[in-house]
Design a protein around this nucleic acid. Structure first.
Ligand SMILES: [Zn+2]
Ligand SMILES: [Zn+2]
Length: 592
DNA sequence: CTCTGCGGGCGTA
DNA sequence: TACGCCCGCAGAG
């Protein structure tokens, strides 16, 4: 292998040599070698069934979020995650309580409250999206993807209303979410020891609904002000911990210590898992603590539920440290990799525009990222397709067999293929990995002209370039106008003249049985919704509505290997794609 | 009127 | 027992 031909970003790893890999045992695990053409670099990769590591890449990712939302004790995190408005995969995040969107349990997806009989864990399930029964296309090429009202009564009013496209005589149909083993994707929020733990289960199998108007208005006002605080705090911790590396260690707070007597999600005390003690917390002046709240309260703003900004800053400084560059990759992951719908502008484009070199890497490598066409899949080596990886928050407690070894999932059904490929996350993991590399050598692609444009770049002279890069991501997100183009951002709830009568109560989704084939649960053998699970779009842009309803459900899985409902099905079945099972293929570099 | 969260209750596996 | 989901209620905006 010609190291010299590798991009600069890979040089630190390629020239490092296999002998210097942190995990020597991986070097002996040669089962299958696959050549992957990445730019002009051929990287020998080894696929194994055993846990392996990418040097300094995967290990860092795996250190994040091994918890489950139901765990009795949730670990303290070193750094908070940037708020993710569109959590698309099974994922876990830990947000700062001062991130308003996190406090409000905001999601781009239309999530409604669901009673899980656990007052300490807020559970929400996805309502799907309203689409046109005629699958019409607006003049601008966009599809109808209206946001379901959260209120049941309001949502009922939406059903059957005429398509908002004046040229269409279709009606609105609720495309229900079945991305979690046939059930709606669920989000869990838990406020524990001064942080907000978020976990998503399932993968949405429908287009993104249009964003709430309130979100739009707030977004431009806020410009991720609060996330900047998280970032800055992390940067400060990074700076501090270069001087005090010995202070860092992870803590675990027992669940019993995390629960206060305050109402769930309305905590007004400061004793939730962490009590600010000025005697033990070295406080330093923090000139960069930004103003958290807007001068003019927006209708969405509520009083801060946990502590003051001051105590939070102290909490950060004491408990969190060491900027995790993976946060950067996470953002890339969230911004530009997940298939988008609705002809939405790819946030990735913004990132690419700002970082052309990164764009090249993302779009020209053959790792399958940003899957675009069926041909991409068909023409790729089968081995390439084996790169099934875990979701963005790997659960190490699960077993991940080789899903794509199943002959039944080959090309006969293009939509299945799409789903497989999309689910395979080949691109995501690989891109994450490369993102990590990128974030470690941002100077290779982040030119001075960009950095100089940052108004605070001069204020953080000792901040690493990756940090600066990370700081750009929220801007990309904010500037990229990810809103759907199909409807006006000023209105979200469609206004219609006539209402459809409220249907009688139905089991398992009152509004989801429109012309959909029914399957007995026993046919599938897994505890899943007896409706047609919809596959994912591959290119993530224009997926006709009918596609979401045309695929037979998997019938190989008995679901017996799923620990929890729809969580991880470890058998070798087609149900994985609906359970979003974690299929881990270990990838190690081979040096020749 | 809608959003949001809470919680009782029921059915299913 | 866990889960999904319906429903009504209440507070807030
Ligand atoms: Zn229409
Ligand atoms: Zn969904």
């Amino acid at each position: 292998m010609n190291y010299c031909s590798a991009p600069a970003i890979l040089q630190p790893y390629l020239t490092k040599g296999a002998q210097n890999l942190p995990h020597n045992r991986d070097k002996n695990l040669y089962q299958k070698s696959v050549k992957i053409q990445c730019l002009h670099v051929q990287v020998e990769m080894t696929l194994t069934e055993e846990p392996t590591f990418l040097p300094s890449i995967k290990s860092r990712e795996e250190q994040k979020h091994k918890w489950d939302i139901n765990d009795n004790a949730l670990p303290l995190v070193e750094t908070f995650d940037m708020f993710t408005e569109w959590p698309a995969e099974n994922c876990r995040y830990v947000y700062n309580v001062e991130v308003e969107d996190a406090r409000r349990h905001v999601s781009g997806w239309a999530m409604r409250n669901t009673n899980n009989h656990n007052a300490h864990i807020l559970k929400k399930s996805c309502l799907g999206v309203y689409v046109c029964s005629h699958d019409c296309t607006l003049e601008n090429g966009a599809k109808i993807n209206l946001r379901p009202a959260i209120c049941d009564k309001a949502r009922r009013k939406q059903i059957g209303k005429p398509c908002p496209n004046v040229n269409c005589k279709g009606r609105l149909e609720l495309l229900s979410c079945k991305g979690h083993c046939g059930y709606p994707v669920t989000h869990f929020w838990r406020h524990v020891h001064g942080a907000i733990y978020f976990q998503a289960k399932g993968v949405h199998d429908h287009p993104q609904p249009e964003v709430k108007a309130s979100s739009l208005s707030r977004r431009h006002q806020k410009m991720t002000r609060q996330q900047h605080k998280v970032m800055i705090t992390n940067l400060l911790n990074e700076r501090r911990n270069r001087k005090l590396p010995s202070e860092r260690h992870k803590k675990t707070v027992p669940y019993s210590e995390c629960v206060c007597s305050c109402p769930p999600f309305e905590c007004t005390c400061k004793s939730v898992g962490y009590t600010y003690n000025p005697a033990t917390v070295p406080r330093r002046p923090n000139p960069w603590t930004p103003q958290i709240y807007e001068a003019t309260p927006s209708p969405w703003q509520r009083s801060s539920s946990v502590g003051s900004a001051e105590s939070q800053a102290a909490f950060f400084n004491d408990s969190f440290s060491n900027v995790d560059h993976l946060t950067c990759s996470d953002q890339i992951h969230n911004v530009g990799i997940h298939p988008q719908f609705n002809n939405q502008k790819y946030p990735c484009d913004s990132v690419s525009n700002m970082f052309p070199k990164m764009n090249i890497i993302f779009q020209q490598n053959n790792f399958g990222n940003t899957p675009s066409t069926d041909d991409t899949y068909r023409n790729s080596s089968p081995n390439l397709r084996v790169y099934k990886v875990h979701d963005c928050a790997p659960d190490e407690r699960s077993v991940y067999p080789n899903y794509f070894g199943d002959e039944q999932h080959k090309i006969e059904n293009s939509m299945k293929i799409k789903s497989e490929l999309r689910d395979s996350c080949v691109d995501m993991d690989t891109k994450d990995n490369f993102s990590s590399i990128l974030s470690s050598s941002t100077d290779d692609f982040c030119g001075d002209d960009i950095l100089n444009g940052l108004d605070y770049s001069g204020s953080y002279g000792d901040i690493l370039d990756p940090d600066l890069f990370q700081s750009l991501i929220p801007r990309c997100m904010s500037d990229s106008a990810t809103y759907p183009m199909n409807t006006s951002p000023q209105t979200t709830t469609p206004q219609y003249a006539e209402l459809k009568p409220i249907r009688s109560r139905q089991r398992q989704g009152s509004f989801t049985n429109i012309n959909q084939p029914q399957f007995k649960s026993s046919d599938i053998g897994c505890k899943r919704r007896n409706e047609d699970p919809s596959p994912f779009t591959l290119d993530g842009i224009q997926m006709p509505t009918s596609f979401y309803r045309s695929i037979d459900p998997p019938k190989q899985c008995d679901g017996s290997q799923m620990r929890h409902h729809g969580e991880v099905c470890s058998c070798n079945c087609a149900l994985k794609q609906y359970c979003n099972c974690n299929h881990s293929i270990n990838i190690t570099f081979t040096y020749k």
